[in-house]
């Protein structure tokens, strides 16, 4: 097991390297260091000297990938790419182009992101599973049929409509919650209710349908028939057997996304002005703060890979037949 994990981590290194190179190339094809300097220095009275100074101070006055003028063993290291990459692998993200320490910012903004994403996931899971169970329980009735139709309808509505509508009705007309914003501690709850409700509702359509198929597959299996033949009622069958067995694919599916929850939700956060990592990323894109963007890309891929490893491990835990090799 430990050996397996170690190998996966080693395997992650070239992946991260690839991600790093890709993000580096993508952003430097469009943005020269000069552009970045001008972006940060503002509009008025920007002279060539000021641009040079900025580049020097932020370490962008080196060649991009290959330094011809440096001595032989420094040809690779005396470059922007090397200098800016080496920190990433040590998870030290350095200072953003606008001058703030990125790691500090990430540490701070992680919590708002999590406080939306985690409840949304858990509540969403509970709601989706119960809706799906209900559909299976009432199968072949008008209730199932209308629920399926409702699911498809819910699925076909753009998430933007949910957000705009939710903000308009619940925040503005009914005045039940603040329209947007965030606070620390327990007072954050009133800001979080609406985004969570919205993300749960917008996820019901596809989520409930997916779980329904999982349950239906399970229901048709032989052991369920046996259980029913034993004289168990329909509810007992569902809760004792079907739910238990269907939980395996559900949970392993959840494990994959768990680490990525840190990254936050781009749209939700910027609509509700919640200072999480999602809105952090969007802001960075809009202000072309390359250091932050690269840090977030890197963090995202680390978390993604972490999620993959977690899934593998969770398979071995729920299903002893699976062995990692």
């Amino acid at each position: 097991m430990i050996k397996y994990i170690l190998r996966r981590i080693l395997y992650a290194l070239p992946l991260l390297m690839g991600v790093n190179i890709l993000s580096f190339i993508l952003f430097f094809v469009v943005n020269s260091p000069d552009d970045m300097a001008r972006m940060q220095l503002g509009q008025k009275h920007v002279t060539e000297q000021a641009v040079q100074n900025w580049k020097h101070q932020h370490g962008y006055d080196l060649p991009l990938l290959w330094n011809d003028r440096a001595s032989s063993n420094k040809k690779m290291t005396e470059t922007i790419f090397y200098q800016k990459s080496i920190g990433l692998f040590l998870l030290d993200f350095g200072v953003s182009d606008s001058g703030r320490n990125i790691s500090e910012d990430i540490k701070q903004r992680m919590w708002p992101s999590l406080s939306i994403a985690l409840p949304s996931l858990i509540v969403g899971l509970l709601v989706n599973i119960s809706v799906a169970l209900m559909m299976v329980l009432f199968r072949n009735s008008y209730l199932e049929f209308s629920s399926i139709v409702l699911c498809v309808i819910l699925m076909s509505i753009s998430s933007l409509f949910y957000i705009i509508g939710g903000q308009f009705f619940i925040g503005k007309l009914l005045k039940l919650v603040p329209i947007s914003g965030y606070d620390t501690g327990f007072s954050a709850i009133k800001f979080l209710i609406l985004p969570i409700v919205i993300s749960v509702i917008s996820g019901i359509g596809s989520g409930a349908r997916w779980y329904r198929t999982l349950f239906l597959e399970e229901v048709e299996k032989d052991y369920v028939r046996t259980a029913r033949a034993k004289g168990l009622t329909e509810t007992q069958v569902l809760f004792k057997h079907v739910l238990k067995n269907a939980m395996i694919p559900i949970l392993t599916g959840v494990v994959v996304v768990l680490p990525l929850l840190f990254m936050g939700s781009l749209i939700m956060e910027s609509f509700f002005s919640i200072p999480g990592l999602g809105s952090y990323t969007i802001d960075a894109i809009n202000s072309q703060d390359f250091a932050i963007v690269r840090a977030m890309v890197f963090l995202g891929s680390v978390l993604y890979i972490f999620g993959l490893i977690l899934t593998d491990i969770s398979y071995t835990i729920v299903d002893p037949r699976v062995r990692l090799s």
């Binding site: 890709l22 894109i285 963007v293 890309v297 995202g300 891929s301 890979i305």
Partner: peptide
């Protein structure tokens, strides 16, 4: 596998943003 894991692990919004910028340039 390497190619698609790499691509998958980059948040797609960032990829899209970068390439849209590229077209504009």
């Amino acid at each position: 596998q390497y190619i698609y894991t790499t691509l998958n692990s980059i948040p797609s919004v960032l990829l899209i943003a970068a390439s849209i910028l590229m077209v504009q340039v």
